[in-house]
């Protein structure tokens, strides 16, 4: 196995080319780029595509993204009395999802509520994950008094009921912009994630490879970003989605009950109108008015859950390696290997 002949010329100078490989392994810039593309874009996409849940989830989310960007351009905003009052679903070709009591196109309303909704979701998700990641990693990695203080704060934030607190704040300071709404709604959503991340960091920081990096004098910043945070990605992604769902549920609920000011169109606002103006509860005639936004919400939430489950796989190096290699045309023995390990474990 060992090449003993190299030893004969063994000087003690280690900057000697003894250990430099003869072959030219320099890669062309384009090749490097394509490698990076494979590792960071192609492989994750392929992994997602591999799993039916993730595939459906991504498609659903993509649909909503398109709706919130291109859809807004393609579909004209709803105007009063553009159609008959309370037309049902698929009754005409013009208003696919029917119209409301003022003759507005429900489909157009839903489409035009999407951008604000997306802004809100992303704001809430980003706020939660960023705050939680910072607090969780700092607390776990630094330890000491700072850790105690941060975790006590997290515990309190975790205990205070989110919705009532948000309601109180919202009543006192009505938020206007969707981004503010998103952040307000996730005001204490970070706490649970921060705690989970902290215990994960505590475990990871004891791993030998982190200690090895410390021993190599790798800066803390690099250790955190390269050695520690990648291990947290599954948590972060799953919780990003969790936070996003929280924002959807919370905002729609609060708009629905009319607690949040109707500054922007929102699916919850449509629900509210159907509930209060349409009397959806009492007659079948207006049921579509209520169902349309409802299904919109449920579908997005469904897509997000499926997507989160798929993301779990993207961050698993075992699965990722297989895809990068597949692409390079290397023989794929991983599947066999895994089965074999499970069997040999039993032997």
């Amino acid at each position: 196995m060992k090449s003993t002949d190299t030893k004969t010329d063994g000087g003690t100078d280690i900057d000697h080319d003894l250990f430099d490989s003869g072959s030219d392994v320099e890669l062309a810039r384009s090749e490097q780029l394509s490698n990076a593309f494979t590792e960071y874009v192609y492989a994750p996409v392929m992994i997602l595509w591999d799993d039916w849940r993730a595939r459906i989830g991504s498609l659903i989310i993509l649909g909503y993204l398109l709706m919130g960007t291109i859809g807004v351009i393609l579909v004209e905003p709803a105007t009063l009395h553009e159609g008959p009052r309370l037309e049902g679903v698929f009754e005409g070709t013009e208003f696919l999802l029917g119209t409301d009591i003022l003759g507005r196109d429900l489909f157009a309303m839903i489409v035009h509520a999407t951008p604000a909704m997306l802004q809100m979701i992303i704001a809430g998700g980003v706020f939660t994950t960023v705050v939680a990641t910072i607090i969780g990693t700092v607390s776990g990695y630094k330890g000491g008094v700072l850790d105690r203080v941060l975790m006590t704060v997290s515990d309190i934030a975790l205990t205070i009921p989110g919705l009532p607190l948000v309601i109180v704040i919202v009543v006192i300071f009505p938020p206007q912009h969707p981004v503010t709404v998103g952040i307000l709604l996730s005001i204490n959503a970070w706490a649970g994630l921060a705690r989970a991340l902290r215990s994960e960091v505590l475990a990871v920081r004891e791993e030998s490879y982190v200690e090895a990096s410390r021993t190599m004098n790798v800066p803390t910043r690099v250790i955190l970003t390269k050695d520690i945070i990648p291990n947290l990605m599954p948590y972060i992604m799953v919780n990003f989605v969790g936070a996003a769902r929280g924002v959807i549920f919370g905002s729609v609920g609060l708009y629905f009950l009319g607690i949040l000011p109707f500054t922007t169109l929102n699916w919850g606002v449509i629900l509210n109108m159907a509930y209060t103006q349409g009397g959806s509860l009492y007659t079948l005639e207006t049921i579509h008015w209520f169902l349309a936004p409802m299904i919109t919400i449920i579908l997005l939430s469904y897509g997000l859950i499926l997507f989160a489950q798929g993301m779990d796989r993207v961050f698993n190096p075992r699965i990722r390696a297989r895809h990068v290699q597949d692409d390079a045309g290397t023989e794929d023995t991983e599947d066999d290997g895994q089965i074999q390990t499970t069997v040999t474990e039993q032997i």
């Binding site: 959807i248 549920f249 729609v252 609920g253 629905f256 509930y275 959806s280 509860l281 049921i287 209520f290 409802m294 919400i297 449920i298 579908l299 939430s301 469904y302 859950i305 499926l306």
Partner: peptide, 18 residues
């Protein structure tokens, strides 16, 4: 379960009420 989990409780409430 994933589907049921996607439904906000207040929507379930309204549907049941209806």
């Amino acid at each position: 379960i994933i589907l049921l989990n996607s439904i906000p409780y207040y929507i379930a409430a309204v549907v049941l009420l209806y």
